[in-house]
Each structure stands twice: as C-alpha cells, then as structure tokens.
Amino acid sequence: MITLHLNDQIIKSLSRPELQILQYAYENTETVLDMSIQQLSSQVAYSPATVLRFCKKLGYSGFAEFKYALRAELREKGRNVSTQSSQTFTTGMMIDTLSSNIQATSTLIREEQLNQAFHYLDSGCPIYLWRPGGLTAVVVEYFEKLLLSIGRQEVYMIESEKMCEHILRSRPQKCLLILISTSGKFAPTIRLGKIAQVNSIPILSITPYANNEVAALADVNFRFFTDQRENLGAEFTSRLPIFFVINTIVQCYLRYCQTESRIEKGGGHDPAL
C-alpha cells in the first residue's frame, strides 16, 4: 500500500465518498493505474464527476494527473512499474484529462435542467446573450448561431455591458438572460446577473462545477469541468466542455421539437433521430 503526501487540511475537506475513493486507490494502486475514470467510478460506485471532483480537491488537474502522482509514488517505493517514454505518456495523459473532463461534464447534465431550458426556448420570449471579450465570446457566439440555426427567433447577442444593462433595466416583458463564464468570477458578468435578478429576469448560466457567484444567481445552471490556465495574463482555459454543453442543449432541444411535431402530425418513427 502507498500513501500520497496530503496535508491535513485536504484530508479534512474530503467527504465520506471521497475518502472511500482515496482508500480504494491506496489499496489497489496498481489496478487503478490501468483504469479509466469510468472504470474506477464503476468500481467505487460513485459517478465520474465525483471522482474528478475528488482529484481536483487533492490538487490535481484531473484523473490523469492523480494517476501520475500514484505512479510516481509507486516508483519511489522502488517497485517495478511499467514505464513509457515520457513523450507518449504525457500526450496520453493530456488526452485522458481532456476526455475525463468531457465525460464528467456529460454526467452533470440533468434531464430536469434541460426541461427548464426547453421551457424558456419554447416560450418564444426574447433571449439575450451577454458576450464578454476574449475566448468566451467565441463560446457565446456558438450558442447564438446554433439557436438561430435551429429556427429559434428573437435571439440577441449583446456585446456592450452598458447596452446589456440598459436592456435588463428597461425590459417590460418576459425575457431570458444567458450568462456564460469560464471562471464564474468575471465581475461584469456577475454584475449583469445581479441586475437581471433585481428586475426578476430569469437567468440561464453555464459555469464551472465549483460553487461560484454567477451560478448562484442563475435559475438554470449548467456546469462543466475544466482546468483554469493562463500564459502571463493571457488566459487559454479549454472551452471544449462548454462547447459540449451548448451543443447538448441545442441538439436535445432540436430532437425534442422534432419528436413533438412528429407526434402531432401522427407520423411514424424516424430512425435517423
């Protein structure tokens, strides 16, 4: 059995399921090293999202890095662990982290949240998307373009914070505000969320898995896993999980609408869907 060097604070912060995962990893280190996050999660009977949260609590970027730390610890103990060339190992590790972030994100999407989103999309109310700068702008625009492409009318992307504020304050009828934040901490986004809340405008948000202010303001909140990164102030956190969430919302809505209209028309089952 091996042990990782974790400080008391981290150990104290672990919940009971997380402690059980840790214990399992200590007792079955060599098996865990060959497992994917899905395999481990089915062994310990907790969701991949819980396993990933556990890895992050321990201070690792994801499951791959957790395994890397276990492997390093085993090696330290002088055991014979299969070694690969560092180049291919890190590439594998990188792809593993990427996949486990997506996998875990997909398990966070709940039917109930989708239904709430469908409710706003169905209602035909105006939808305002707040588009901050940088990389998140690309994600917001992806949402906007997909919504328009599937025939949803009244989708407006607002690029100016002041304009957005103006609309939220003066909007007499029902509408929906969509906020996407990669950190959940971006001040202008939080501010707009608060203005919307004061004016009782519902908010749909997409934010990181951890508790954050933007999520707390939202009526419907979709969450994702990603690792925050930057290069001397220029941030390049992966948006892939957010693209995945947006695509899921839009494609599910499209299929939901198609099922509805087919039943209304009394048509048969379309195998393509």
Binding site: T91, I95, L98, I150, G151, R229, N231, F236, L240, V250
Partner: peptide, 28 residues
C-alpha cells in the same frame, strides 16, 4: 441540416483543435 440551415455542431473540429492547443501549450 435543419430547414436547409447547417447545424453540424462541429464538436470533432473543436476536439481536434483543443488537442492541437494542448500540444502547443506543452511545447511552450
């Protein structure tokens, strides 16, 4: 396509690009 509009979500593209980004970040 939906009503003759392209709605291909291009997730494969984003995945490929993300991996290129990771490789670039590692190189950096």
């Amino acid at each position: 396509e939906f009503h003759h509009t392209d709605v291909n979500p291009r997730l494969g593209f984003f995945t490929v690009i993300q991996i290129i980004i990771e490789l670039t970040a590692r190189k950096k």
